[in-house]
Write a protein that binds this DNA or RNA. Sequence first.
DNA 1: ACATTTGTTAACCAAATGGTTAAACCAAGC
DNA 2: GCTTGGTTTAACCATTTGGTTAACAAATGT
Lengths: 203, 203
Amino acid sequence: MAKKKDENTELQILEAAKNVFQAKGMDGARMQEIADAASINKAMLHYYFRSKQLLFEAVFKNAFAMLAPQLNIILNDESSIEDKVKNFTSSYISFIIKHPYLPNFIIQELNRNPAFLQKIQENSTLLNIDKFKKRVELEISQDILKPISGEQLFINILALNIFPFVAKPLIKAFTKEDDAGFKKLMKDRRTEVSEFIIHAIKK
Amino acid sequence: MAKKKDENTELQILEAAKNVFQAKGMDGARMQEIADAASINKAMLHYYFRSKQLLFEAVFKNAFAMLAPQLNIILNDESSIEDKVKNFTSSYISFIIKHPYLPNFIIQELNRNPAFLQKIQENSTLLNIDKFKKRVELEISQDILKPISGEQLFINILALNIFPFVAKPLIKAFTKEDDAGFKKLMKDRRTEVSEFIIHAIKK
DNA sequence: ACATTTGTTAACCAAATGGTTAAACCAAGC
DNA sequence: GCTTGGTTTAACCATTTGGTTAACAAATGT
């Protein structure tokens, strides 16, 4: 019946599509380029994924799923805010240094088509900051933290961690660093960012 | 010689092109759609701007130029770091609330083609953080600020101000806010962000 | 008035692009 | 060995897209 090569081809396609889509976006990507990158015939893309749209969605879902475990550190674990921040920052930045195209890809395509989020949102715990907010309020009432809204703190944490990778060309221009220098700046941020946040919120 | 409508048409095109490019990006934008939005014939786009690429560059340069005065607050004025932060934050966020597509547009296209920066970089004072860094070092030596590298502080300031607008769909999903709620969150940030930063860096 | 320049339009074009098809290929079961 | 059914390929197709052209309209200079 089925060849063994079956699954292999599908993975080859997904890997190639990931690279092309992340580099060029949905609109900029070409099916032929994906086929070339996967060393297969263009018709195979449609045989396995029916359309560019469906192939893209498969890639996007994979990409988004890679970030979920990171976000859970902030949103759903039981530790203190300080630990959440330290833990998330070092873990997230290390992770993104290995997958530098990921944040930009997700943000770019989410802006192009915000409806994608609802398609993924079945996993409701992932996009729910209630638990985080409760913990923030608790620690404020315990005089551990200065007053701040949970939403704003959450936005700030994401911003400080994610933004530099999204704005990499801009930051490289300002700091006049090359790729190696930029990477070093980012590595430093694994501790710098959590210190910055802790200083800002701790009483 | 020239009709009076001359300049008017060019501005109509630029305005329409701005809207379409900012909403769909270079790759997603269609010349026909821009022509329709400007209520003119498609051939006019080429008559005034020769090619899609050149029209895009005109739009991009305009967009980038709008941000320059904002950045100068941080980089080139003579005030203290605290004043720079307060001044920039309230001014920048108010500005972006009026032009919400701008940051995402610029970041997206800079990632697609980082070479655009060099085309603009003739204005060297805009992309130079030396003066800002010197001021940071001065205030650290005066015991006004906690030790922090100028680069990292600059990245943090940009991140906290720009990121929420770039990641708007994500933030709307997390906070479960509608457009009005999101806008309110952003307005709050005009003071929240500077307080956050000041707390983080002031001794 | 009239020639010239500039602005505008509709029709057209070649290339690129996502997608389809029909035939070939090939491993497995009989 | 040959049938069967999923896999792969080359050729093809319709549409879209950026760009061009040639004719026409409106100003302007003289």
